[in-house]
Design a protein around this nucleic acid. Structure first.
Lengths: 214, 214, 214, 214
DNA sequence: CATGAATGAGAATTCATTCAT
DNA sequence: AATGAATGAATTCTCATTCAT
């Protein structure tokens, strides 16, 4: 159990992160300044540095918490749906909702991969980030294998690769939906949610054994 | 026909854009400074402002020219391949190569959509960008309809929407491949190009009437 | 006699000063932060301000205590050596060791002189510092006069002035030895201590009636 | 010959350095900010960074030019006085005047020695600084040897070491005279210049063959 | 037309100091 | 009395943009 002091520290870190997350979502991490975060979080700029060592630490902390949260949501979606297809929908819904609420995570995840290239000199927080990312990929890869074992999915490629492709495809769709909400409604007359549900369906088709059904 | 003066202006704009494009591809738009562009283009920094009103205009101009170029490549791929499946591969190859050479375009497209929200105050260059985007979407939508007419593709969704989803999915895959080149080789033991070809195949499966071919 | 309360206050001030002195010696006053002092002294930063009004007061307090300590060492060296030349060596050893252990004092002394220029508005601690400085100078001036009376030293200048010059010369040598320890060993192949002993010898030559001794 | 552009650049660099030198002399390098230098030099802060890469470069540039200037003055003093004792006085006058006009140089020279410890990673400007320092020491060492050859000086220690001690002693005296100008006048009733002349005389005594004259 | 030169506005980060408990 | 927490005011450095020639 956390001491009162630790709890308070966590509270403040959380407030700062929440503010930063809002701003990152709105303007991106690059264009968000420490001044912005200070204003939004209603702490002084100096106080930010009491709770985080640098702007980078804030960015990484948000990335990490986002990824942990997503991981939990995915686990839950998989666990609570015995039927593979239902679980698949749950997984996709989780991802869609997640990015609906954490749009900034996209760019941060992109950054993660860049840092990956830097190799061994990565510090603790980056290691954690990578671990969670790996764990999530493994989780989905296992889910795919289960789908294959149950005959729901055909896997013509290694599961890990398939997961990555699936993930990337969904990612792109979510990102596009985020940016074009207005366009979708005005031109295609369709809601973001429905648009994404269609996308998820498309991706499902790309890995299910459609032919066998014939 | 352009006057000599106009032609010269276009020449200079082109030189600047070419330099900027190289730098954006290398370091991203955010981390590329006007000084960098001046050095690379071998103009003075002030001259940049003779041909472009701001850095943003350069970014937009590159986006526009990139999109125009892509549009042309797509038209060519479609026109030169009578067989729909071959044309499909050509289209995908074009996109893959295109982003391989213009990785920065991704972020700019993302930004474009954000600006779109700002509505009527968008300036000329943004309007053009949107127009080209529309044209490309239309091109692909027509291509899809042709595929459906030829019986190669099943369209369960409106073509425009399908194109957008397809586009977004491919986008995400390309982006991921870009950021994780090292990871792909080290962990999955696979080349970027091959990874993307698999992705393209997956996306194709998601829209083709696989069942009928059997 | 100090009340119990006053004694306790003195104890805390002493602990803080001891910690600060260590840090100043290591990194210099400028680069030592109040956080550093708090950590080293194992008080909270706020408590530092209970016992001292500002960082400057800590710096001055250390300077004062250093000067008092040096004064005592000099008195002892002079008192315990009946022979003037031995006492001279004792005095120089005392100074050399003193700055070996309190290198930071140098800069503070330099600062002292600057503040002196500010005239009447100097606060209590600065007055005390000046008083101790005067007392030390007087002590050495008397020592010189004794040397002259004993025929060991020729004084062609007023004692006070000679002391100041002697003092300044030794100061410069000690300071140089401090900064160039590595250089001395690598290039001149000589230890700091020996270098300074040579310097002390040189300074002695500059004030003794070498001719008469012959 | 310098092009007009280079000459102008040198002019601006010179103006900035002159302003910085004034401020460093007044408040020390640490306490002088880039804002101060901008104000004093009547350039904008950003312009400072057009002509110098960092504050450190300004500090180093001042140190270097000071040392080069001093070196020249010393060479001249030695060359223009055939008599060793007169040359000695010339050398001392040069040093005294030099620090009268560049008091800041003291601290910078002190810093130099610190950097010396950092060894091989020193950059170009630091190398130059060290070279000039070495050259000055060599110049004075040769001067001492000449004095010994002419029978004017007794050298009981290696010339380089003697130079360093002499140098350090003079340094200390100059520094003290600088800080205590007021004190000297009020208490000892003596001018800075005369005080230092006495010091120089003392140092001379410390290396001349006083005894032999007897 | 082209540009060298200059800069205003801001960016991340640091640190001595204050204050409520 | 002692301190955890918070911060105002700097500090170094950057960069898109302007302007006189």
């Amino acid at each position: 159990m956390l001491s009162k002091k630790q709890a308070l520290t966590e509270f403040h870190r959380g407030s700062i992160l929440a503010a930063a997350e809002r701003l990152f979502a709105e303007k991106g991490t690059e264009k968000t300044t420490m001044d912005d975060i200070a204003r939004e979080s209603e702490y002084s700029k100096a106080t930010l540095y009491v709770y985080f060592q640098s702007k980078e630490e804030i960015v990484n902390a948000i990335l990490l918490s986002s990824m942990v949260l997503l991981q939990k949501k995915l686990e839950e979606a998989i666990r609570s749906n015995p039927n593979w297809f239902q679980a698949y929908n749950g997984v996709c819904e989780a991802i869609i909702h997640f990015y609906g609420e954490n749009p900034a995570a996209y760019d941060t995840v992109a950054r993660q991969t860049v840092m990956e290239a830097e190799g061994g000199q990565a510090d603790q927080s980056l290691k954690e980030i990578r671990q969670v990312g790996e764990a999530t990929n493994d989780l989905l890869a296992d889910f795919l294998k289960r789908g294959a074992a149950e005959g729901a999915v055909r896997i013509e490629l290694p599961p890990k690769e398939t997961v990555l492709l699936f993930w990337a495809g969904l990612f792109g769709m979510v990102k596009m939906a985020e940016g074009r909400e207005k366009y979708l409604q005005d031109t295609l007359n369709i809601e973001r949610e429905e648009f994404l549900r269609h996308g998820v369906r498309m991706l499902l088709d790309s890995i299910t054994k459609g032919r066998i059904i014939e």
